[in-house]
């Protein structure tokens, strides 16, 4: 069953006809070609597919594309502005917050919301905020470091 949807992704509006069962993550990756959002599991655990919808992060594997009708979605591709990396992206780079890079988009998206809500988190609060994102490479150490560095950078900018 095809359903028409209209939404804004990274500032661009899209009108599409999607199968009702199409998951948002499949819509982003397959229909819009935004493959920066990854699929790491099928049980809503890993967080590789985290994007922001109307400001709040969500796991785009746990949302039908039709549920995003009318929404404003931001993916990893939409974070950098005018060729400048987002401070969280920059901090991941500076602090070796990634290795294979597969969880990275979800991690970065989660941390952007975390810092919006709490601009000066403790390491413990960062760790708690990453509950929904799994990284198999970094042991989280440098991800936490990157999040704290990004917070610092955003506060002092």
């Amino acid at each position: 069953m095809k359903v028409p949807i209209k939404l804004t992704v990274n500032g661009r509006s899209h009108e599409s006809e999607v199968e009702a069962r199409t998951l948002l993550v499949h819509y982003l990756r397959d229909d819009l070609g935004l493959t920066g959002t990854k699929i790491g599991c099928d049980t809503s655990q890993c967080g590789a597919c985290v994007v922001r919808m109307n400001g709040a992060t969500l796991k785009s594997c746990t949302c039908l594309a039709v549920q995003a009708d009318g929404a404003e979605v931001t993916t990893i591709e939409g974070l950098a502005q005018d060729g400048n990396l987002h401070p969280v992206q920059e901090a991941f780079w500076d602090n070796h917050g990634l290795q294979c890079g597969y969880c990275t988009a979800g991690m970065i998206m989660t941390i952007t919301e975390l810092l919006d809500r709490n601009p000066n988190p403790s390491a413990e609060e960062v760790r708690a905020g990453l509950e929904g994102n799994i990284c198999r490479c970094t042991g989280y150490h440098n991800i936490v470091k990157a999040a704290l560095a990004a917070a610092e950078a955003i506060r002092s900018s």
């Binding site: 493959t35 992206q89 970065i108």
Partner: peptide
Amino acid sequence: GIRRREDPRLITGQASYTDDIK
């Protein structure tokens, strides 16, 4: 400990993993 040269594509979502290829 210079920062990694592979990272720009990975932190921007521009890297292509197998399943990203069409």
